[in-house]
Computed example of a mutant assay.
Amino acid sequence: MFNQSISSRALRLLVVDDDPDTRTLLTFLFELDGAEIITAASAEEALKIMSFFKPDILISDIYLPHEDGYSLLLKVKNLEAKRGRKIPAIAVTASDLDEDHKRALLVGYDVCRCKPIDLDELSFLVSRLARLEQYA
């Protein structure tokens, strides 16, 4: 249903998740499609990475240690605005509470999905956001 590859464009992705298995899985998935991917286990680590890596898309867990994904996205959006860029972002969370999903969208995530993540759908969403960003 969502079978659409992102390989038509070499994307740069930043994945932020405190679960090492999730980081490994998403790295494997997107590298197969030709994306350049860097992962971080925390918001602090992600912000350090943003100083030298300019991702096309951010994929972040909401519940991270020490600083949540809401705060991370606000900082990333501020940093990207200073660079004259806008970064599409996908929130992922184990929470199925409507409040968490609504808050994610309110702070600026383009999409919010529950874990476990449907990998075909996630690949489709990344592809769709990348295409929209090309025309922005």
Rank of each mutant, 00 (worst) to 15 (best):
A91N: 06
S7T: 10
R103I: 02
S123T: 15
I90D: 01
D56A: 03
D98I: 13
A91Q: 02
D100W: 07
M1N: 12
Y109M: 05
L13K: 05
P65C: 03
I90V: 12
V16L: 00
D96W: 11
G69S: 10
A43Y: 02
A10N: 08
E99M: 07
D100H: 15
G69L: 06
E121I: 04
F52L: 03
L73Q: 05
R9I: 04
D21Q: 12
V126Y: 08
F28G: 10
K102N: 07
R113C: 11
I87T: 14
A89L: 09
A136H: 14
D68A: 10
L26P: 09
K48A: 13
D100A: 15
A130F: 00
V111N: 06
V92A: 15
S95A: 04
E36T: 15
N78M: 11
L97E: 12
L129D: 01
Y135F: 13
G69D: 05
E133P: 01
L129N: 09
L129I: 08
L79Y: 06
R23P: 01
G34I: 10
R12I: 00
A46G: 14
M1T: 14
E133F: 00
R131C: 00
L106C: 01
D61S: 07
F30P: 02
V76K: 03
P20H: 11
A130Q: 09
I117K: 04
A94F: 03
L129K: 13
V15D: 01
S8E: 07
D100E: 15
A94C: 02
I37W: 03
D21P: 08
L106D: 12
L132W: 10
A89Q: 02
H66D: 13
M1K: 13
S60Y: 02
H66F: 01
L105Q: 08
P116I: 09
I59K: 11
E44Q: 14
K86W: 00
I90M: 05
L14I: 11
G69A: 08
V15H: 04
L79Q: 14
G108Y: 03
V111E: 12
S123L: 06
D100K: 13
G34Q: 10
P88A: 13
R12C: 04
S42Q: 00
G84L: 00
I57A: 01
Y109V: 03
L79C: 00
I49M: 07
D98H: 09
E44L: 07
G84Y: 07
E31C: 09
L132P: 08
L26Y: 08
V15A: 03
R23T: 10
D33Y: 06
R83M: 05
K86I: 09
H101D: 02
L129M: 11
I37H: 09
K115S: 05
S8Y: 09
N3R: 14
S42H: 07
A46P: 14
T93Q: 05
Y70N: 03
E121P: 10
T24E: 12
T24G: 09
F30V: 06
L11F: 04
L25A: 14
